[in-house]
Design a protein around this nucleic acid. Structure first.
Length: 595
RNA sequence: GCCCUCGUAGCUCAGGUGGCAGAGCACACCCUUGGUAAGGGUGAGGUCAUGGGUUCAAAUCCCAUCGAGGGCUCCA
């Protein structure tokens, strides 16, 4: 299928509403700090808007309340948004005391001067006492903003133009909707996301911990957490084996020189842990696998075209030096386990290999209940972060495009999102709350194999450079687990649940019977526990429910006498009395279906 | 890394204008032996993140460090 373009947010009513609300906020802020407010930019964003200010002091939550109140007054004034066109000179005069606006005007001027002979089109939007340099579009008047559909959410620091060498501004985030109900719905979603936060659930379900003693961004997994990790990894490992992948292992340390050859050192150094120096050899903790896999390919001797495609996969723990302020739970860590693969193939095999990788990814996403996802073709943008070799970039891009087209999948493209060595197809999956995560990726690389001197002998008896497809399915085990916890709200499907069934004796005299059940179920490969606490049954059920355990097996006199178990599902449904065989069949079915 | 907010028992959080450290849950023990989401009692548990400063006196005020959270172009 061909490339798809989506309707632009810029053309929607909500976009105008939020843009206009941002202007109203700016007015309120300027009134709060007359003559001391420097305004920067204030665009609409997904679900809301922000506006950046340079202010004499830090804003407090109390300030936000006051600003919101003042905004409602301004809205009630039904002030018209009036657009006026002007020249660079006039704009500079109007904003003579606004240094950020002057910078923007200067940029607009330069951009046009370089591009065309036309005059830059500069416009103002004015409402009430406030005028902003702005291209719009806006609502007709402030009265069109629903005062009960807006809320200021937070203050955060933000560098002018996102550049850390610039001034730190104060950014006010807000949200605006056309109705109070929409606002309520949005706030509910935020609440729900908070409840499902994997950091919170991870502690509640006892899956993982961080410790200041070990270091930030370095998660440790409990027995339960490691059970889930192991299940996730062996699932993909088995699937990969069936898809013809070979698993390899390449360790944790690599000589820095290798990364100079591959190009990672130049492009990636800031994200590597500092070097370890042993006399005259400098090592780095491995931040990615590609150079190691490619080196392994080389060391394995001469390769014939008959061996290709050769698919190397590894669950490798990598170390990346993320900035301290960027660490977040399991989604942004310093040690991560990538389910990485590199497929060495001939250029003619790209399409079929891409198709195979795509199929594998679709299997995996389905298994994890991600039914909505879209594919982004990530292309090179401007800038020096990409390895320079136009010919190879072009070949890679057209190979990827035709592979995508041949696969029949719908995709959209975005420039500036490529890896530094080649274009990517990224899989953006939506979770149950509609949030989008970049999970899987397939990348086409003509550059690194050449830089590292990989070859194979072709049919013609000559040396050729193989193409390498980089491929990750779940990305990193840690991050994917974090996403899964939120996607499932902690209720893992039966095949993935660290504890699949908890056996609940009604009284202590049923413990022996429970032990027998436990042994039997374990012998059938089920992960079960007995709740031997002296809580009463109700409390044990409550505990199991809050742990999201799929099956609760209640055993009392009746069950013991009839050699049955009473089964309760975490949905609250009671299946009552079952034989062990019936229950085992039930679990088999649940695991096979992935539910 | 930078800005803002925060750090009190294993967890969730009170307290705090400077004057004896608090609750619920979890944990241990005892009673209770129960039929599908919390039975009752008793007890143990804290260098109030760490280090320094101000003070007669610091969990409380100040500084630093460590850690956590919200952010750091979705470009007028």
């Amino acid at each position: 299928m061909v490339e798809k373009h989506e309707k632009h947010y810029e053309d929607t009513e909500l976009y105008r509403l939020r843009h206009s609300t941002a202007h109203v906020l700016a007015q309120a802020v300027m009134e709060m700090f007359p003559d001391e407010t420097q305004i920067a930019i204030g665009p609409p964003i997904k679900d809301g808007f922000y506006y950046d200010f340079d202010l004499p002091r830090s804003l407090t939550p109390e300030d936000l309340r006051k600003l919101e109140k003042r905004m409602r007054q301004i809205i009630a004034g039904h002030h018209e948004f009036v657009r006026t066109f002007t020249t660079v000179k006039e704009a500079q005069k109007q904003f003579s005391d606004q240094k950020y606006k002057l910078e923007i005007i200067q940029d607009l001027f330069l951009r046009y001067e370089n591009a065309t002979t036309e005059q830059p089109e500069i416009s103002f939007y004015t409402h009430d006492t406030f005028t902003d340099l702005c291209r719009g579009p806006h609502l007709e008047h402030t009265g069109q903003i629903n005062p009960s559909g807006l809320k200021l959410l937070s203050v955060a620091g933000a560098y002018w133009r996102g550049d850390e060498s610039n001034t730190m501004l104060q950014r006010i985030y807000g949200t605006a909707w056309s109705s109070a109900d929409d606002l309520k719905g949005y706030l509910w979603k935020l609440e729900e996301a908070k409840k499902r936060d994997h950091r919170k659930l991870g502690a509640q379900l006892q899956l993982f911990h961080f410790s200041a003693d070990v270091g930030s961004g370095l998660p440790m997994f409990t027995p339960k957490g490691e059970t889930v990790r192991h299940l996730m990894e062996s699932y993909v490992r088995d699937l990969q084996t069936r898809y013809g992948y070979k698993h390899v292992w390449t360790g944790h340390l690599v000589k820095e020189d290798l990364y100079k050859k591959s190009g990672h050192y130049q492009n990636y150094r800031a994200a590597m842990f500092p070097p370890m120096i042993d006399e005259n050899i400098t090592f780095r903790l491995k931040p990615m696998n590609c150079p190691s896999h490619m080196t392994l390919f080389k060391e394995m001797g001469r390769h014939s075209y008959r061996e290709l495609p050769l698919r190397f996969a590894e669950f490798a723990t990598l170390y990346r030096y993320e900035k301290s302020g960027e660490l977040t739970g399991l989604t942004r860590v310093r040690s991560l386990t990538q389910d990485d693969a590199h497929i060495f193939c001939a250029p003619t095999q790209i399409e079929s290999e891409f198709g195979l990788a795509l199929q594998l990814i679709q299997d995996v996403l389905r298994r994890y209940h991600f039914s909505n996802y879209r594919v982004r073709l990530s292309l090179r943008g401007d800038g020096d972060k990409y390895l320079q070799d136009d010919e190879k970039w072009q070949r890679a891009e057209s190979a990827l495009r035709s592979a995508l087209d041949a696969s029949g999948i719908t995709y959209y493209s975005e420039t500036g999102e490529a890896a530094f060595y080649g274009p990517k197809a990224d899989f953006m999956a939506q979770d149950v709350l509609g949030r989008e995560w970049q999970l899987s990726t397939i990348q086409v690389d003509f550059i690194q194999p050449a830089r590292l001197g990989l070859t194979y002998i072709g049919e013609d008896g000559q040396e050729h450079t193989p193409v390498v497809l980089h491929r990750a399915v779940t990305g990193s085990t840690e991050r994917f687990l974090g996403v899964l916890i939120e996607h499932y709200d902690g209720a893992f499907p039966v095949w993935l649940a660290p504890v699949q069934a908890v056996i609940i004796p009604i009284t202590d005299r049923h413990l022996d019977y429970c032990q027998k059940l436990h042994n039997n179920l374990q012998a059938h490969g089920l992960r079960t526990e007995i709740d031997t606490s002296n809580d009463r049954m109700n409390a044990k059920i409550r505990k199991a429910q809050s742990q999201r355990i799929p099956f609760m097996l209640i055993a009392g006199d009746r069950e013991q006498q009839s050699n049955h178990i009473s089964v309760r599902l975490r949905s609250g449904e009671e299946l009552k009395s079952q034989t062990l065989e019936q229950f085992l069949a039930l679990t088999q079915e649940a695991m096979a279906s992935g539910k």
